[in-house]
């Protein structure tokens, strides 16, 4: 009887616990969503409203002026196109290199495996640092070329480990041996058996690299001075972060100042939306692979 009572009490306390957890989660969700929502609404709002209201929930009327300004900005368009190229070429190279690194390391009897694993893993924890790397890239004559963005970050050991673990756990040994007996070369085995079985992990790894490519500003800041090669993130940095000082300079001289200031503010929000949309479009396409891809690779890695 008392045990039953106990169970009832327990059920009640569990309910309270779950309730509290849900309340906290709801709060966290609001904190995560609202800033993103604010940017989205602000981009469709007449900038004057942003000045008048601290909080925005829905645009009073949809206003597309800010977006028109974005698409009239030549630097932005050049940057956008450059970033698409950097991302496509760079991610392709990343994925190919990642497979080249992960497949050999996933093989059961590959002589030198330990050596290569150690050699690659060491780079995760120790590096030459910013300056020596910069000097190497410079010495190779890559600076101020398209390839300065692409090649120095061609592959990363972390992602190789994830993919290697996936290969090891998902591709049965028997399959490999059967293929060997049939006289299939390692290379054909990779192309015709391993890769078709590994679509989820390839999609996930491509997303990792792709997002990194699209969002990277630092390597371009270091290696690129030619404005024609600027990726979107560097253009964004100019629009969003660097013009503040010059905005303040011409306060005195100009009567159209406040109008321009407002247009600028609207432009900033629209620029953020346009530059972030491509990732949020691609992410859902890849998301269905996550369960299969990341978990296996990540946990056992």
């Amino acid at each position: 009887m008392s045990k039953k009572n106990n169970q009832i009490q327990l059920a009640a306390s569990d309910k309270i616990f779950r309730g509290v957890a849900l309340v906290i989660l709801a709060f966290v969700m609001v904190i995560i969503i609202y800033p993103i929502w604010f940017v989205l609404v602000a981009s469709f709002t007449n900038p004057l409203e942003i000045y008048q209201n601290a909080f925005l929930f829905w645009p009073k009327e949809f206003n597309f002026e800010s977006y028109k300004l974005v698409f009239r900005d030549q630097d932005f368009i050049t940057g956008f196109i450059n970033s698409i190229l950097y991302t496509l070429v760079g991610t392709t190279l990343n994925v190919v290199m990642n497979i080249c690194g992960a497949y050999p390391l996933s093989k059961r009897n590959f002589k030198g495996k330990t050596f290569f694993t150690l050699m690659f893993t060491f780079t995760m924890f120790f590096s030459g640092g910013l300056i020596p790397t910069y000097l190497v890239v410079d010495a190779l004559g890559l600076r101020n070329t398209f390839w300065a963005i692409i090649i120095p970050s061609a592959v990363g050991m972390y992602n190789i480990i994830i993919m290697r673990t996936y290969f090891q756990s998902r591709i049965p040994l028997e399959l490999e041996e059967a293929a060997k007996v049939d006289g299939c070369t390692n290379f054909r085995l990779l192309l015709q058996i391993v890769l078709p079985l590994s679509v989820p992990i390839i999609a996930v790894i491509a997303l990792y690299y792709g997002v990194g490519r699209w969002n990277d500003y630092f390597s371009a800041m270091i290696y690129i001075t030619n404005r024609k090669l600027y990726p979107l993130q560097l253009v964004l940095r100019e629009i969003l972060l660097q013009n503040q000082a010059s905005d303040m300079m011409d306060v005195v001289s100009d009567s159209g100042y406040s109008d321009r200031m407002m247009a600028r503010l609207g432009l900033k929000y629209a620029v953020i939306v346009v530059s972030t949309v491509p990732i949020f479009v691609i992410y859902p396409l890849v998301q269905k692979f996550f369960a299969k891809g990341v978990m296996v690779g990540a946990i056992k890695g």
Binding site: P104, L105, P132
Partner: peptide
Amino acid sequence: RDYDVYLLILPVVVYFVIFAYIPMYGI
């Protein structure tokens, strides 16, 4: 036996030598 596997890993080794180990040498 595995020459094709070594060919596969070669570009990765070259990459790490040039962009990780030569900079380390440059320290």
